[in-house]
Amino acid sequence: MIKVEKLIKTFHNYKRREGIKGAFFDLFQREYKEVCAVCGVSFQISAGELVGYIGANGAGKSTTIKMLTGILIPTSGLVCVAGYVPYKQRIEYTKNIGVVFGQRTQLWWDIAVIESFRLLRKVYEVDKKIFEERLNNFNEMLDLKDLLYIPLRKLSLGQRMRCDLVASLLHNPKVLFLDEPTIGLDVEGRVKIREFLAHINKTEETTIILTTHNLDEIEKLCKRVIIIDKGRILYDGLLSQLKESFSCGKRVIFVFDEEKTREELNNLGFNGQVGWKKLEPLRYEASFDRKILSAAEIISKVMAELYVKDMSIEETAIEDVVRKIYREGNVNL
């Protein structure tokens, strides 16, 4: 469905000089430098996939999305979505996609939401019967009923985002691009949108590309993730595999009734295979390699020797994985 090959986008940025003197010189001459926002990205996404596109601010993910949606023209490389080259056949192409920008609404600010929908129906040339049917469907899933007759500016952020989602799906697009759709929403709003997306992906087989900073969401929605940093792809593959290979280090946290010395803990008989770290008074962390030891072994041994008031097993969170990837700048599986 989506094919991207060696995609490159460079921008010209100018440097601003400092101070009054610098600003004065800037009036007459500016220094430009070329910035590579996306440098050589390749991937393929097949129909019906739900892919998470992850990256820090300025990593190049928005730029990629904008090239995929036909907003930006690539400096070089190949983009092909649903059989179209987005920037070349833009008008025909956009009938096949839906786009949601988290920070920007597609709808008209001052008119009732339903009016915006009706206008979009004409823009995308959707048959009236199909339109009503789809709208009814979405209404039920996202319970929009009461919102439809209110001007957009009076809606809350979460309500607005739900309406924006519906607007992007009215014409039954083959591909849906979501650029940070849950930015600034509360937990409940996020859950609603997440469930909706999962449903759409399943029932309508819409290909969905989702960028977000909220990794929790990616974890609950996407099987596959693409991680981008500094314009390059760091990882492209299954989320579970990523977690698997990174969470080989597991941790158990113990709370004891009294302070323990390092010696005491090291003498528990793990032959140095467990690393101990004091987190707080009375709280200690035991980290170990899952391939060598199991959590059960450690727990039973510690509990046999010492009095344990409380304990917990910590799974490596996806956030830790991503943080680690960024720090290291590559993924070695």
Partner: peptide, 8 residues
């Protein structure tokens, strides 16, 4: 951006 993702 918004204008560019519509078929008009």
């Amino acid at each position: 951006d918004r204008l560019l993702v519509r078929p008009i």
